[in-house]
Amino acid sequence: MKKKTILANMLFSILALTQYASAVENMPSLAVQQGEKVLVIAHRGASALRPEHTLASYQKAIDDGADFIEPDLVSTKDGMLVARHENEIGGTSNISTLPQFAQRQTTKVIDGKSIQGWFTEDFTAKELQQVKARERIPKLRPENTKYNDQYNIPTLKQIIELAENHYKKTGKVVGLYIETKHPTFFKNQHLAMEDTLLKTLAQNNYSKNIAPIYLQSFETTNIQYMKQKLNQYGLKHVQIIQLYDDPKMIPGDLLDQGAKTTYADLATVQGLTQVAKYADGVGPSKIYIIDKDTQQSTSFVQNAHALGLKVHPYTFRPENNFLPPQDVCSQIPSERCERGSVQEIKRYLNTGIDGFFTDDPKLGRDAMTQP
């Protein structure tokens, strides 16, 4: 009798596991399950239409229907958080043309790479007020160059105020999706950003009590630290996102520690299980979701959802240069292909993602509303 009971329990366990695997395979996105909408995240603002990380780019994104605007943050010499994709700003500003800063050009090793240029941590916030933003990829976005040298490099505080002012005028809440860039590097320069970021969010009523906030990083330890500090700063609307770079790469903090864990390791079921202990979601490169060679969906979204993680892939861009071959409008790399961009986004929506980063929020909105 005892043997029969054990056998029955084993069979029941096998059946349960089979049913679980089938459920995971056919699981709809959490957004669908919970009745949530898929989020349109303005990658560096509406960066396909204005120079990235400028107030004009963020405002354009808000006007075009973005649910969130995404500032990348770096630190100045005096600890001010400003919006740039990298701490090297020679390629996104006019700083190389300013004679007063000519001697500031230098070479540094950032996350294991030697880079020459001008770095935000060598300038005070006041000095950076003399610098104007420029289009990062002028050959692919020539129309954006007409906005060169018009806009300042904004601070985090100014970005929060921009979103808050829009809320006061229209009643529309726009979220903030904030990334800390090279946090281990800045920590080693005695310019750690995490507490400054949390303190800034807590000091503003809009970012503390009204707007939804995501904090993201390609590193791991700094977002774990911020996760632990949220209650201390009274931040109740903040969620944590683990970003995923090239599968072969090692996160900057782990590289600094001499660890060998790659993003590919973090993308396995075991890796995602560890990430789910501190993050609310993941921000993978598109290749984790649809294989770039076969164009077939992977199990990444289903695996993440099974662990309760949201999935927000990056980055959807409307120029032919960035589109898969089946979506391009022509062989001209800089030509905008709106139809192709919408088609690409729709394929990813069909995988069950919960949001996505796009350089053109209007096209992202179109992808979700067009039949």
Rank of each mutant, 00 (worst) to 15 (best):
L7C: 04
A16T: 14
L17N: 09
S22C: 11
A23G: 00
E25Q: 13
M27S: 14
M27N: 13
E52W: 05
L55F: 04
A56N: 02
Y58V: 03
K60H: 04
A61I: 09
D64L: 11
E70T: 11
E70K: 10
T76A: 06
G79Q: 11
V82P: 01
A83L: 07
Q100D: 14
A102M: 04
Q103A: 14
K113N: 09
S114K: 15
I115A: 02
W118G: 06
T120K: 01
D122I: 05
A133N: 01
E135T: 15
R136V: 06
R136L: 14
R136G: 00
P138Y: 11
P142Q: 12
N144Q: 14
N152Y: 00
N152I: 05
Q158E: 15
E164I: 02
K168D: 08
T170N: 07
T170V: 01
G171I: 03
Y177V: 03
I178A: 08
E179F: 00
F185K: 05
F185D: 01
F186E: 09
H190K: 15
E194A: 14
L215G: 00
S217Q: 04
N222W: 06
I223E: 04
Q224D: 08
Q224P: 03
Y225F: 13
M226S: 11
G234C: 00
L235D: 09
K236C: 00
L243R: 04
D246E: 14
P251C: 02
D253T: 04
L255M: 12
L255I: 04
D256K: 09
G258E: 01
T261S: 02
L266M: 15
L266E: 12
T268Q: 08
Y278P: 12
Y278A: 05
G281N: 08
G281S: 04
K292T: 08
T294Q: 10
V301R: 08
Q302D: 13
L307I: 03
G308A: 09
G308I: 13
H312Y: 06
T315Q: 07
T315C: 09
N321Y: 15
F322N: 13
P333T: 06
C337Q: 03
G340K: 10
S341I: 01
E344C: 06
R347L: 04
N350P: 00
K362A: 14
Q370W: 03
Q370E: 13
Q370D: 08
